[in-house]
Write a protein that binds this DNA or RNA. Structure first.
Lengths: 220, 220
DNA sequence: GTCTATTTTTAGACAAATCTAAAAATTATT
DNA sequence: AATAATTTTTAGATTTGTCTAAAAATAGAC
C-alpha cells in the first residue's frame, strides 16, 4: 500500500467516524483530502480492486474488513507517534499532528511495537484519543462533553473532540490541558456559554464551541 | 526537495566519501542506487538546475555547497534516528538502517533538534559514525583499522567501516561490538588474518575483510 | 592516431497520482 | 413526472520518476 492509498483509507475511516462503517461519498473524501472529486473517483476504483474498500459507482464507498484493519493500524501508528512527540520530545499537543502524519507512513511493524513498549503501552494519546493495541482493539472510557454539565458539576479534562491547531492553542491559553480539573460555576442559557473554575484556582469563560469539544470524566 | 532527490544527494555524498567532494560518475550513482544510468542522467540535470549539484555532461557531478549542506543534514537525521532506534528502542545495530532510511525523510527541523536533545546530543551513532551537530560540524577521532595493528597491540572497538547487515550480524556472533576491547595475539601474513583476544576473556579469529572494516582507538 | 570498448546521454514509453472540462447519473424541486 | 441542481464519473492532459534501446561522447589498446 502506497502512502497515498493509506491517506485515502484514513480519510474514509475518519469520515465514517470509525463507528458504523457507513457509506461515504466521493465529494466528502475530496473535501477532507483537499483534492478533486475526479482524483478520488480514480483512487476508489483502485482501492476497490485491491479489496481495501467496497465501492459502487455513484453509490459511495466503505472500508472492507481488510481496509478497516489497515485504518486501525494507521491510527495506532499515528497516535503512538503523537504520544512520543509530546511525552518524550516535549512538543505541545497542538504541534504534533503534521509530524505524526509523516511518521505514521514509516513501514516496520517491529518499530511500532517497540515504540509502544518504550512508551509503556499507553491507552490514550495526548488528545485523549484511544490507541489501538497490537490486536487492533481499543479501550473506551466514560466521558461526557463539557457542555452537558450543570452548575456545580466537576470533572477532569481527558480529551478533546476537535483537533484543530488554533483550538488546541486556545485551550493552552486558558490553562486547559489533559488532567486539568474543571468545575462549572455559572451557565448562561442565552448563548450556552459557561464560567468554570480551573484547577480550583483560576476562573475561565468558555463559549459553546469550546464546551462542545472538551471531554471530561465526571468526578461529581 | 523530494525524497528521491534526497536519496540522490545522499548517494553522491556517500560515493565521494564526504572527503574531497570529488567528481562522481553517472554509473557509480546508478550502481549505488540500484537504478539505470539513464534515470541518473535525468535526475542530475534536475539537481543541477536546482543548484544542488555541479554537473557537466559526460564529465561527472559533485555536490554544490548547498547540496553538501543538505547531505550533512540528511546524515545528521539518519544517524540520530539510528541512535534512537538502538539506544532507546532496543534494536540491534544490524537492524536499523532501512528504518532510519525512511525516518530521515520526515520533514521538521524542530523534530530533529528535539530528538538530538532527547538523546543527549550524541556525537557518534551506533556504528561509530560521527553525527553532524545542528551547525553541520562533525567531531573527528583518532581511529585506526584493526588490520594495521601488530602483535601485542590493544584497542577499543569504536566503529565499523562497512555497514552491511551480514557483516554486522557476523560481528555480533564474535562478540564484537562498540566498546569491546581487543588485543592482537597472532598475525598470519599468508592471508593477513589475525587472532585476537576479545574483552580479555575469549579468543576470536578474524579474516582480512573483517579487520579492514573495524575501527579501533588504540590503548597501547 | 585510429579503432574498439566503455560510459553517458537522448529519445520515446510507461505507471502513479493528479488536474480541468465535459458527460452521465442521481437527487431535489415544483 | 419533468426539469433543475448536484454529485459522480469519464476523457484527456500533466508531472515525477522510472525504464529500454539507440545514439553520442570519452577513454583505452595497439
Amino acid at each position: 500500500m502506497t502512502s497515498t492509498e493509506e491517506d485515502y483509507i484514513k480519510a474514509i475511516f475518519s469520515i465514517a467516524q470509525g463507528t458504523a462503517n457507513r457509506m461515504v461519498g466521493t465529494n466528502d473524501i475530496a473535501r477532507e483530502m483537499d483534492t478533486s472529486a475526479a482524483s478520488v473517483s480514480d483512487m476508489l476504483k483502485k482501492l476497490n480492486s485491491k479489496e481495501l474498500v467496497i465501492y459502487e459507482k455513484y453509490k459511495g464507498v466503505r472500508l472492507s474488513p481488510n481496509g478497516t484493519e489497515r485504518a486501525m493500524f494507521l491510527l495506532r501508528k499515528h497516535r503512538l507517534w503523537e504520544s512520543f512527540l509530546v511525552n518524550k520530545l516535549g512538543f505541545a499537543w497542538d504541534e504534533v499532528h503534521d509530524i505524526a502524519e509523516q511518521l505514521e507512513h514509516v513501514k516496520s511493524n517491529e518499530l511500532v511495537n517497540k515504540l509502544d513498549a518504550f512508551l509503556g503501552y499507553p491507552k490514550f494519546d495526548p488528545h485523549g484519543d484511544p490507541i489501538p493495541d497490537s490486536n487492533g482493539t481499543i479501550t473506551l472510557r466514560n466521558q461526557v462533553l463539557l457542555n452537558t454539565l450543570e452548575i456545580g458539576d466537576e470533572g477532569t479534562l481527558i480529551g478533546v473532540k476537535m483537533h484543530n491547531k488554533d483550538f488546541l492553542a486556545h485551550l493552552n491559553g486558558l490553562d486547559l490541558n489533559i488532567g486539568t480539573s474543571i468545575k462549572v460555576t455559572e451557565c448562561f442559557p442565552f448563548d450556552n456559554s459557561l464560567k468554570i473554575m480551573v484547577n480550583g484556582k483560576s476562573e475561565a469563560y468558555v463559549t459553546e464551541i469550546i464546551s462542545k469539544n472538551i471531554y471530561l470524566k465526571k468526578t461529581s
